[in-house]
Design a protein around this nucleic acid. Structure first.
Lengths: 193, 193
DNA sequence: AGTATATTAGAGGATATATTCTAATTAATC
DNA sequence: GATTAATTAGAATATATCCTCTAATATACT
């Protein structure tokens, strides 16, 4: 019933993510997104209440996708060797979802989840952060039991190191396959030394 | 001669960097900087031609400072062990110059060096990039001679890994001393494995 | 003291962009 | 085929903020 939309919600957000990856959140204007997606500005407001909501949706869509992969990988990290393998979700995600990786990696969360974003969106961001914190605590307890710096070291190893490694290549290029071995070696060393 | 300025150029840029670190480049408005620095908007335009120039100056001041430290450190990296020590400039800079580290670490260069920035500023950015590229090539030739992936691995080890490690703590906190050992171990492994 | 000059001071115009609003379109349902 | 509902379509308005402009002010030099 009713006229069919000429673009799906997912495709609209994907187009917006591409704009955000290319131009950054500041230049991700309604006009720019509407042009990139090939829909009039009014159609965007038909689906989303505001620009702040659009920016939040871009970031949350990317973050939820990445976090689903990351938490699944971390759950399997029962040894330092397995953790080194799990850390490779980050370069793999960057290769599979370049624009979303740039959104997550090259900008601060606060530039997408702004003070003006509707509460619903802010709540999703809070939930994501809490889930990640919990997963990191569990992983740290398994990998480095008894180490008072366990959480900190696990975060540096499983998140910081792979993030920094892919950032050398983003946003212009895609991280080459070969760095995976470098990342794995670095993660092992950071957890084991 | 003439009325004395109530804030130096350096202090103005430092105040602006603090705003940028806190709110991001998009919300680093002339009004916000003028309020933070305690000077009227007209005074800012008396010194800088435009907002684009101000944003560029914020980034360039931070980048030039960091790069001076980094290139000096990399020049001493004649062994993998020395390189692991050199990589610690990144956490040290983050501790000594928190706001500038956040500017460099948590945002893309393009959000500060915009298309509208005066040519003079763009030229400084180009020069910085060229100097860094050259220093990395030299360092790679010393550390990993004959390795076809030498430049890539050196960049990941000396830039990517420490950058990612400090990013776990920025912008809210300062990276703790203790992660230096984790970074050094990771850098050694990335270069040596 | 008087003059020249650099800077402060902040109100006002110009511009960019978010948002709203009315009408036109298109498909499913009766 | 008429009706209804969802969406397109884009012009018009509101708002934010950059930048300009005129006047006032404070120091150094003569």
């Amino acid at each position: 019933m009713g006229r069919p939309a000429q673009i799906s919600h997912e495709d609209l957000i994907a187009a917006a993510a591409l704009v955000a990856a290319r131009l950054g959140p500041a230049k991700t204007t309604i006009a720019a997104v509407s042009k990139a997606a090939g829909v009039p500005t009014g159609s965007i407001y038909h689906r989303l209440p505001s620009r702040d909501a659009l920016l939040a949706e871009i970031w949350l869509t990317a973050a939820e996708r990445f976090q689903a992969m990351a938490l699944a990988a971390f759950a399997t990290a029962n040894s330092i060797e397995a953790a080194a393998e799990a850390a490779l979700v980050t370069p793999r995600f960057a290769r599979a979802h370049h624009a979303q990786a740039v959104v997550l990696n090259s900008h601060r969360r606060e530039e997408f989840i702004t003070a003006g974003a509707p509460e619903e969106y802010r709540a999703r961001a809070v939930k994501l952060a809490a889930e990640l914190r919990e997963a990191m605590a569990n992983t740290a307890a398994r990998l480095l039991p008894g180490d008072p710096r366990g959480k900190e070291r696990t975060a540096v190893a499983l998140i910081g190191i792979p993030l920094g490694a892919v950032r050398v290549f983003l946003p212009q290029a895609v991280p080459p396959q070969e760095i995976d071995a470098d990342i794995a070696a670095a993660v092992r060393a950071a957890l084991r030394h």
